[in-house]
């Protein structure tokens, strides 16, 4: 509970948590919260490119759809991508990192060299190439992001496992003849959890950002789906007149990613004192 109280004293971390929780609620109830839920796929040519007003607080887009509703509906795509990609990357990266860190010799060497290869090029460039090869769709963008994000988890877990491997409790377990599998997953993994949780939180924000870039470049969500990056890309032809069309989806991306980053930062201070952000 000490941890919990310490967390609550960190104002910006609490702000982050509130933003993230709000986003989750909005995403969960999006079809009921959006004033015009049908605007996900319906168009109204007579209402196109209307500036913000009482009926459409964020204005309407090139097909007359309510931008406010589409921003709310877009939170689903953003959070789905974030959760699926980060958990997928953890499912691949964490076991690989554990095995590479716990074993030594060629298994460990091979695994870490493969990780290095993936980290040798910025994630976005690799993900873009992969998304293109698989064919542009939100599903393929998620696959591309997962396949390029796991090395970050493998790296962290590897370093943690290396550190924990020499600690007394692991030696004791080895002395008791516990199986390697059990030592790795039941004993080392829980002790390595704090940096993994911090990375996962920040990774959610990062993934939302990268997925939006893929959408913006036409390698992610496909029209008419309400996705924030795609919306900004669609709006470009109608600038500078329809400024609202570009502005609000981008603000939504900013707000959500900002929330995850604040939360991740706060968590780092509380649960992983070794990585402290310096007072």
């Amino acid at each position: 509970m000490l941890v919990f109280r310490k967390f609550l004293r960190d104002v910006s971390a609490v702000i982050g948590l509130v933003i993230v929780l709000l986003t989750a609620v909005v995403a969960l109830f999006a079809p009921w919260l959006a004033p015009k839920p049908l605007d996900a796929h319906e168009s109204h040519p007579l209402l196109r490119l209307k500036p913000p007003s009482a009926e459409a607080p964020f204005g309407t887009d090139n097909l007359g759809r309510d931008v406010f509703s589409r921003v709310i509906l877009g939170s689903r795509a953003a959070l789905t991508v974030a959760v699926l990609v980060v958990s997928g990357a953890m499912l691949i990266g964490v076991p690989l990192g554990l095995v590479a860190g716990y074993r030594s010799g060629w298994v460990s060497e091979t695994l870490m060299r493969i990780t290095d290869v993936f980290l040798a090029v910025p994630q976005l460039i690799l993900a873009l190439a992969l998304a293109q090869l698989l064919g542009p769709s939100l599903k393929n963008a998620m696959v591309a992001l997962t396949l390029t994000y796991w090395p970050f988890f493998a790296r962290i877990v590897y370093a943690e496992t290396r550190r924990l491997k020499t600690s007394v409790f692991v030696e004791a377990l080895q002395g008791l003849n516990a199986s390697s599998f059990r030592i790795m997953f039941a004993h080392i993994l829980p002790n390595a959890a704090p940096p993994i949780i911090v990375r996962a939180t920040i990774g959610m924000g990062f993934t939302i950002l990268t997925a939006a870039v893929l959408g913006f470049l036409g390698m992610g969500a496909t029209p008419p789906d309400p996705e924030w990056g795609l919306a900004v890309s669609e709006s470009r032809q109608y600038l500078p007149d329809a400024w609202w069309f570009a502005t609000f989806p981008g603000l939504a991306i900013f707000l959500v990613v900002f929330g995850f980053n604040l939360l991740g930062d706060g968590l780092r201070d509380v649960i992983d004192p070794r990585l402290r952000r310096s007072r």
Partner: peptide, 27 residues
């Protein structure tokens, strides 16, 4: 500054670019 540094890495660069274009080039 902390607010701004956490915010700086949360901005989508394509959106930031378009906002700058909108303000400084178009308007």
């Amino acid at each position: 500054l902390r607010f701004f540094t956490v915010g700086g890495i949360a901005i989508a660069s394509f959106w930031f670019a378009i906002m700058l274009q909108l303000l400084f080039a178009m308007q």
